[in-house]
Amino acid sequence: MVGHLNLILRLAIWFLLTADFSVANIIIGVSIALLLPGRHKTPEALKDWLRVLGEVIVAIPQAYIEALEIIIRPHHREEITMERVKPRRTPGLIFLDIFVITFTPKTIVLKYHEEGWYEVHRVRPRKKT
């Protein structure tokens, strides 16, 4: 089941990149998704995928709220933090984690460290003094 989720993720990325749902593009997308090299074999739980997909759904309204906050009250303070990658993350789940962090306007992942850390840039409102 989880292997199908990887295939769906690859196809979703393909369709987001091409924005074309013609028959030829669907055939090309499925071919590319199947031909891409496989991942190293690590156990993935379906609940991990569902949890991340839930986070993606929650990130959409959060992105709108953060965008309005930045428009109404500009954020001038920046910081770079290191966030730990959750345990047992496969490349597909790491990609979705980075997507969720970067999707919101106040945060962006600058770098993924192989040791298990995300380098995250955040903007924050200025502290009141």
Score class of each variant (00 low, 15 high):
Y64T: 10
R77T: 11
I65D: 12
A24L: 00
K47N: 15
G38H: 08
R51Y: 07
K106F: 01
V23S: 06
L96R: 12
E69F: 05
V109Y: 07
V58N: 13
I32W: 01
L53N: 04
L17H: 11
E66M: 03
L96H: 06
T102C: 07
D20Q: 06
F15A: 04
L17S: 01
S22F: 12
R73M: 14
L93H: 04
L11M: 14
L7S: 09
H75A: 05
P74E: 12
H40A: 14
V58W: 08
L36K: 15
L50M: 02
M82N: 09
N25K: 13
R124A: 03
L16Q: 10
L35R: 15
K47V: 02
I70C: 03
V2F: 06
Y118W: 10
I108L: 03
T104D: 00
L53V: 05
P74R: 04
I80F: 07
H4G: 15
G3L: 13
E83R: 15
L68I: 05
H113C: 06
P43D: 06
R73E: 10
F15D: 10
V2D: 14
A63V: 08
F95C: 07
T42P: 00
K106E: 09
P91W: 02
R124V: 13
E44H: 09
K86T: 11
R51A: 08
Y64S: 10
R10F: 14
G38T: 10
K128R: 12
Q62W: 01
T90D: 03
K111R: 15
K111P: 03
E83Q: 14
Y112Q: 10
L93R: 01
L68C: 08
I32L: 09
T107D: 08
V85T: 05
V52G: 00
T102D: 06
T42A: 10
V120D: 05
T81S: 04
I57Q: 13
S31F: 00
E78S: 14
A33Q: 14
P125N: 00
I80L: 02
N25W: 11
A24V: 02
I71K: 08
K111M: 10
S22P: 10
G29M: 03
Y112P: 00
A63C: 09
H4A: 14
E115N: 08
V56Y: 02
F15N: 07
R88V: 15
L17E: 02
E69I: 09
I32S: 04
F103H: 11
T129G: 11
G38C: 07
V100N: 04
A19I: 07
T42V: 02
R10S: 15
V52C: 03
G116S: 07
E79M: 12
L9V: 12
